[in-house]
């Protein structure tokens, strides 16, 4: 499994033709205490860079974008019940949704972990 990152502080775990998407620990530290997460509907087709989910802290709402195009095949219902998971385990239990990858060539524009670390440094 490969993990890739976007400049908007999202991560993608690639497993065959499925990408699991979440926000990075850096993103959650910038957001602050998360109190609400709105997830896309299963079956929705997302275009790359389209607003896919919303994460709200006490103070502000932020969009989570589809880092690549694809169809939503699963969402993390646990996040709706416990939004604070985003703060406690951004890179793990707090995954947002899974996409069936539409075009693997879109992965080419994403960063690996070293590049992302340099991006946030």
């Amino acid at each position: 499994m490969t993990t890739l990152f976007t400049s908007d502080h999202e991560w993608l775990r690639i497993d065959g033709d499925v990408a699991t998407i979440g926000v990075t620990d850096y993103a959650q530290s910038q957001l602050g205490d998360v109190v609400f997460v709105e997830l896309p509907k299963v079956g929705r087709t997302l275009k790359k860079a389209e607003a896919a989910a919303v994460v709200e802290s006490v103070k502000a709402a932020s969009d989570v974008y589809a880092p690549i195009s694809g169809e939503v095949i699963e969402v993390n219902e646990a996040l709706a019940a416990e939004p604070a998971l985003v703060n406690s385990d951004a890179g793990g239990k707090a995954w947002f949704f899974k996409l069936k990858i539409a075009d693997k060539s879109e992965l080419g524009g994403l960063m690996d972990e070293a590049a992302y670390e340099a991006h946030t440094a």
């Binding site: 602050g32 109190v35 802290s57 006490v58 103070k59």
Partner: peptide, 12 residues
């Protein structure tokens, strides 16, 4: 300062 390391929720 909009918040300190404790965060908005704990500060509140």
């Amino acid at each position: 300062p909009v918040q300190y390391p404790a965060g908005v929720l704990k500060e509140h």
